[in-house]
Nucleic acid binder design. Sequence first.
DNA 1: TTCTTGTCACCTAGGTGTTAATAT
DNA 2: ATATTAACACCTAGGTGACAAGAA
Lengths: 227, 227
Amino acid sequence: SVQLEMKALWDEFNQLGTEMIVTKAGRRMFPTFQVKIFGMDPMADYMLLMDFVPVDDKRYRQVPRGQYAFHSSSWLVAGKADPATPGRVHYHPDSPAKGAQWMKQIVSFDKLKLTNNLLDDNGHIILNSMHRYQPRFHVVYVDPRKDSEKYAEENFKTFVFEETRFTAVTAYQNHRITQLKIASNPFAKGFRDCDPEDWPRNHRPGALPLMSAFARSRNPVSSPAHQ
Amino acid sequence: SVQLEMKALWDEFNQLGTEMIVTKAGRRMFPTFQVKIFGMDPMADYMLLMDFVPVDDKRYRQVPRGQYAFHSSSWLVAGKADPATPGRVHYHPDSPAKGAQWMKQIVSFDKLKLTNNLLDDNGHIILNSMHRYQPRFHVVYVDPRKDSEKYAEENFKTFVFEETRFTAVTAYQNHRITQLKIASNPFAKGFRDCDPEDWPRNHRPGALPLMSAFARSRNPVSSPAHQ
DNA sequence: TTCTTGTCACCTAGGTGTTAATAT
DNA sequence: ATATTAACACCTAGGTGACAAGAA
């Protein structure tokens, strides 16, 4: 069995409509897909991998900008989905490894990157921007038998967490998603308005919060109460 | 067969008497031990690992400081070696992997760290400061046979490159070693006096070369001509 | 005196959203 | 108009030798 890590954070994003940036060079997911695994044979070898399947057959588009909302928080259907991207798969870099190894700590897919470049040759996952995707997690038992191909059907298990669904985008559409990313991703700390909790601790006189100040004056929408 | 990478740099250090820093938290080696491997069975599994054996049974000490030399460049024998440290081994983190995987690129032991902490529980290599060591590189063939233990003797090969010998130290003794490390290790770039080659390219007005200026006025010994 | 330790400024390496310019 | 790109300031994370203080 498999348990999704940071489920509370995934739920919070999912409630707003998770968006994941895709770039030409490849962008990591945030939250990162991480799981705890139970019930493996400690001595057997397993491959762990992920893939992404379309949630529906639709292409989405941003809602028109009103006078007061810079970006709206919902989506319009723009039509039928674009041609499917190459259905790539991301093997966890530690694969193959023993069950004991996989189970003794959280398995993190933080090396996985998303791209919209159909010609990508870095092995990244290729997705269509403005389409919705469902991440899937697969566990493959490495069968030591010589005729293992015959048992391929029974040697893997697939796990789907619906709360990890997202829309691939090249720029964030929902400002609340942006704010939640900024609030929860350590690498976006530079864009935080203020974190009263540990601000005095981390504060260095040399660091000028230029962008933060700029962002503050720029964005009329207040950020959600998330720590 | 195995080929040592950066042999020219290793030779340059070895000629001066290579020193490697050991710290409580663990310190990487520089140069990093890297090899190219040839002649593996592409489909077979191998484990790659390193260990470190004493070169001799001696403890060394710094030569007394003369009036003109802040640190001398040679060593005195201080007596018999201290009790041997726990003989740890460092498995390359990609182990086990197929021969094809190992051979298709340079194998780098840049995660290996040296410590002088006898109670280290981070899995680092424990060495005695002021003792000389010889790194060794081992290739272990993962024998698929059930009674593989019986063939252990013929299933591994050891490679020794004498030019990678070094003295473990907690602070550099030979100033020329320090200068060569600064000149050749990218992470020590902050201590470079000046590199006329690519200085205009890398120069940013904001970066004040404070330490470099200080070091310049502090060290009477000129650095070797190394780029 | 010699050796070790902990802190520091200065780097490398790379992950963020922002922004302006460009493409569609 | 909407969508994408590329450069950028600001971070995280961690590898350097210098230095001062401490230990042996």
